[in-house]
Design a protein around this nucleic acid. Structure first.
Lengths: 119, 119
DNA sequence: TACGGTAGTTACCAAAAAGTAAGTATGTAA
DNA sequence: TTACATACTTACTTTTTGGTAACTACCGTA
């Protein structure tokens, strides 16, 4: 849980408010989120499928990140009232629109890695 | 200081290693780094100038982030042996090459903010 | 000899993020 | 009645990040 007041939190919020770029990072830049989004560009995933696709993630973190991505409008969550339960996750329009940027940053990352290794 | 072993650290490193995108985020996606890089696209900055340009940042965090950006090859640090001392920071070629991507993510962030506000 | 200006460094503490492990709910099928 | 499958929750602990405030080093000048 978060405290309601702290310089730390105030700074974070101020940055997110005044800079759309930092706001963007707050939506998709945390630990497992890029991996989740990346996988989802391939199509629809169920909870268990995603878990198997990213084996190191814990169920807690997977749930948490999926919920945040949903709240932030990047993915949809569809519950099928069956037994055993089925829940499917898919990218929204907004989520899909991230894809080309992810790819560019991915390319930049490869370049940066090479630059760093040369030294 | 970091521990030398923890699942947390291992996960982070595994993700950075296998995904250039997450690696890219590790270079430019932490708290004040986007703000610093953003400012620097305008030109060369001295330590004190940057401090005044981003008033909420503490000296400790500014130093720390500048050093990491330097280590990662995104900026250069030039010391002029004068008194009082003068140190100038500027983007490297690699750092500059981030600029168009920053702008795109920035635009995406604005779009995302609007999407979120509608609800 | 104390003071100003620049660019830091350091020790310590608070807050946030991430991980672990055990537990929940539901219906079906053995 | 016990186990299975799926999709989570929850309480608790560890690890990491960020903030605060005081201190350092250097030289010129008053």
């Amino acid at each position: 849980m978060r405290k309601e007041n702290s310089v730390n939190l105030e700074n974070e919020q101020a940055l997110e408010t005044e800079c759309p770029f930092i706001f963007a990072l707050s939506l998709m830049g945390k630990r497992w989120k890029p991996a989740i989004l990346w996988k989802m560009t391939e199509g629809i995933y169920r909870f268990g499928e995603m878990k198997r696709a990213i084996p190191q993630i814990s169920e807690k973190m997977l749930t948490q990140h999926l919920r945040e991505l949903e709240t932030d409008g990047l993915i949809t969550r569809t519950i099928y009232p069956e037994m055993p339960p089925r829940v499917e996750y898919a990218l929204t329009k907004l989520g899909s629109s991230l894809q080309p940027i992810l790819e560019q940053l991915n390319n930049w990352g490869e370049k940066a890695k090479k630059t760093k290794m040369k030294k």
